[in-house]
Design a protein around this nucleic acid. Structure first.
Ligand SMILES: NC(=O)c1ccc[n+]([C@@H]2O[C@H](COP(=O)([O-])OP(=O)(O)OC[C@H]3O[C@@H](n4cnc5c(N)ncnc54)[C@H](O)[C@@H]3O)[C@@H](O)[C@H]2O)c1
Ligand SMILES: NC(=O)c1ccc[n+]([C@@H]2O[C@H](COP(=O)([O-])OP(=O)(O)OC[C@H]3O[C@@H](n4cnc5c(N)ncnc54)[C@H](O)[C@@H]3O)[C@@H](O)[C@H]2O)c1
Lengths: 213, 213
DNA sequence: CTCGAAATGTGAATGCGTGAACAAGCCTAG
DNA sequence: CTAGGCTTGTTCACGCATTCACATTTCGAG
């Protein structure tokens, strides 16, 4: 059985680790390496080798006993599992400091994503050009998202506007949202949402610190 | 017993949720609300009310039966638990697109953090002023971090440079690092590390999506 | 060709986190 | 003052995730 449990219900936490494995495999490839092992990967990532083997075993048998994993092959398999063996067009809403950094970011394309449109509601910003894209008014959002077949969007507007923007994105057909505004948004269950809040991470760490001053 | 288990070993995953609770309390306060309940918080955050009550009970008894939680009081308690009832000075390394957005970001100060210095190794960038700060050369890193009593730093350099920068930060005395470069870094166990990799979040979501084209 | 070292994939055991349920306490309405 | 509804803090049971440990396979050295 080449591919067991492919359509089974894989724990979400396992899916969340696959991008980390993929990141590590990219680096190993860049180092001209051909084979690696669950032990080496675990070492680099601070994860137990048993966990890596078990995670991968949900999707098939990618390794060889005594040898380990062929890096290029495993990388390709994980890319297929995560559906990043293609390029996802993305929309960015909010062309402020963060939004502009995201549009400029060259790290998306090599990993399966490309920003294809950017929106703002500030008349002063609309029309501005960022990395080859023109900032569009919100009135263009629905039509642009449809035209570019956009399923993935990033929200980079102030928190007061985040919920409304999320609603507009969902109505336009977006199915996955990465929200940078520090607020939990409400969307239909069928829409994927992830959050990035650097302050939450910082506060998590300061719990363990003793103030110096 | 007013404060039970304060020094006990609280599960790390619980600590990770406290900033989310804090974020929600900030919003409720902004809405002029005085009391809330575990049920309301759970509703807003998509978390079960039982979990919220259990998480909080690790640190003490902050609510009143029949009434719920006083928002301002609970907020203050969580701020103390997380040690953000003060302002942590922070360093930013890397004054590129992302680093500049971080230095400009006005969301740090209201939640307990302030960027006090920023570093880069590009001669063209050194001396540049960003939001009132001057970009410093890496040779200044150790002395500046000591002078400002910096314990927390953010890494916003290309991934090739991230490990070396992390090592320098640790040597300078930094105890917590928020790493934006998409690579797992190696530091002593005594140093806290958190990662932000938007692509990892995006890839996590695309697993659940069906490509439209 | 044989042997030993290395590494996978997987059941079994352990440990941890989550949700259900409830006794006890608080507040308000009447 | 009392009754009823609401909410907390906590116990318990369940289920999920992680780690352990090993049979099995592969490779390379001698
Ligand atoms: N800058 C950072 O480093 C950083 C880091 C983490 C999180 N964030 C979060 O990201 C978001 C954006 O941050 P920023 O620093 O870029 O802010 P910003 O103020 O520079 O940019 C926000 C942009 O959103 C636009 N906007 C406002 N309301 C809008 C609406 N209803 N529809 C469309 N566009 C709208 C504004 O015109 C502005 O251009 C904020 O929620 C912030 O908390 C920022
Ligand atoms: N721009 C984004 O939206 C974004 C999003 C997520 C993650 N990231 C990550 O954040 C990091 C920075 O991204 P960016 O877009 O700002 O890149 P950038 O190239 O614009 O900026 C990087 C800066 O780091 C400086 N630098 C390089 N090597 C250094 C060293 N050894 N010491 C000190 N400074 C050094 C460079 O001079 C440059 O100014 C990258 O690792 C990137 O993958 C960026």
């Amino acid at each position: 059985m080449i591919r067991m449990g492919n359509s089974k219900n894989i724990p979400d936490i396992v899916i969340g680790r696959l991008p980390i494995y993929l990141r590590a495999l990219n680096l190993l490839l860049a180092e001209q390496r051909e084979y690696t092992s669950s032990h080496e990967l675990g070492e680099r990532l601070g994860i137990s080798s048993a966990q890596i083997r078990k995670d991968l075993s949900h999707f098939g048998e990618f390794g060889k006993q005594g040898t380990g994993y062929n890096i290029a092959y495993l990388q390709e398999q994980i890319r297929q599992i995560l559906h990043v063996d293609r390029e996802w067009p993305m929309a960015v809403v909010g062309a402020g400091d963060l939004g502009r950094a995201l549009v400029h970011y060259r790290g998306f394309v090599p990993r399966g994503f490309r920003v294809v449109c950017v929106f703002d509601n500030d008349p002063a910003r609309i029309g501005e050009r960022i990395a080859g894209l023109t900032v569009q008014p919100m009135s263009e959002l629905a039509s642009q998202i449809a035209a570019h077949r956009v399923q993935v969007a990033m929200i980079a507007v102030p928190l007061e506007a985040a919920q409304e923007v999320a609603t507009q994105l969902v109505e336009a057909g977006v199915e996955a949202i990465l929200n940078y505004a520090p607020i939990t948004i409400s969307v239909p269950d069928s829409v994927q949402v992830q959050y990035i809040d650097p302050v939450a991470h910082l506060q998590h760490m300061t719990y363990y610190l003793t103030p110096k001053t």
